[in-house]
């Protein structure tokens, strides 16, 4: 067991290192912070002096080595734009991102799961049609469109909720709903189709034939197996939301990490980009690890083989 955990941890470190290394070289290939940070009119010499002060005049491999040496201690350097440690800049945005992601996921999974289950069990009835139409709308509606419409209606016309910003529960409602719509649409569609598949399986039919109560058959046999792709999707979507949902954050002025990283890419704030992707990579690795563990719970045969 300890070997297993160490192995997983090793893999995680390799993945994070991979991401950070790729991003290190890509950002440096793509641009130059000097022209963006100095006032317009700065001379070529001033730009050069500025680059030198940030250490950007060093050979690339040397920059990389000193970056790695710092990064292993959790230090991603000073942000060029914010003038403070990059990792702090990223981490202080995480609570907002986590709040939004968790709320949206919880509601998205509950609504999407319920809707998917209804659609699968009410095959050919009106309920299925209604649920699937809504799911389709949810997945094909652009997030910014939905967001702005919600703002115009609930914040401007009715005045029930704030138009945007961060701080109270009321601020959370609209952005979380916007994201939950998208999440629940994906989950409803996936769960319905995989439930339809698993309900046709022999072991479910056998259980039905044995005269087990339909509820029990549904939950213990059909649903458990159908959940595997759904759990995977939940993992992917959670990772995506925890990495920051740029459009939603922008429309609702939500101070999350997604907007921060886009801003950092735009302003060529290398330390913040690196710290940001390192954090996001860690999130993804952990989530996917959890998902793998869940597979074993849902289908014991996977656990036996997996370890």
């Amino acid at each position: 067991m300890i070997r297993y955990v160490i192995g997983k941890l090793g893999e995680a470190i390799v993945a994070v290192w991979g991401v950070v290394t790729i991003v290190f070289f890509v950002t440096r290939l793509l641009g130059d912070p000097a022209a963006l940070l100095l006032p317009v009119g700065a001379s070529a010499e001033q730009l050069d002096a500025f680059r030198a002060a940030l250490g950007l005049d060093q050979p690339l491999w040397q920059q990389y080595l000193s970056f790695l040496a710092q990064a292993v201690q959790g230090d991603f350097g000073q942000s060029f734009v914010f003038n403070r440690p990059a990792i702090t800049v990223v981490l202080e945005r995480m609570p907002a991102t986590i709040t939004l992601a968790v709320t949206a996921m919880v509601f998205g999974v509950l609504i999407g799961g319920g809707a998917g289950a209804i659609a699968a069990t009410q095959r050919g009835k009106f309920a299925e049609f209604a649920v699937m139409t809504l799911a389709l709308l949810g997945q094909a509606t652009p997030v910014f469109w939905l967001g702005i419409m919600l703002i115009l209606f609930f914040a401007v016309d009715l005045g029930w909720l704030p138009t945007g910003g961060y701080g109270s529960l009321a601020h959370l409602v609209l952005p979380a709903f916007t994201l939950a719509v998208f999440v629940s649409a994906s989950i409803a569609r996936l769960l319905r189709s995989s439930l339809l598949d698993s309900m046709k399986e022999d072991y479910v039919r056998t259980a039905q034939a044995k005269g087990l109560p339909p509820g029990q058959v549904f939950v213990w046999h059909a649903l458990r197996n159908a959940l595997i792709p759904v759990v995977t999707m939940v993992g992917i979507l959670s990772g995506e939301l925890l990495g920051g949902s740029v459009v939603t954050e922008t429309v609702f002025a939500w101070p999350g990490v997604g907007r921060l990283i886009v801003q950092a890419i735009e302003s060529k704030d290398f330390p913040v980009v690196q710290a940001g992707v390192a954090v996001i990579a860690t999130v993804y690795v952990s989530i996917n690890f959890l998902v793998d563990l869940l597979y074993g719970v849902l289908d014991p045969r996977i656990r036996r083989k997996g370890q």
Partner: peptide, 16 residues
């Protein structure tokens, strides 16, 4: 792990 790496790289960076 390749999937994790790919997921963590911001789309904007990839596009640029």
């Amino acid at each position: 792990r390749l999937v994790d790496i790919q997921l963590a790289i911001p789309l904007m960076l990839l596009a640029l």
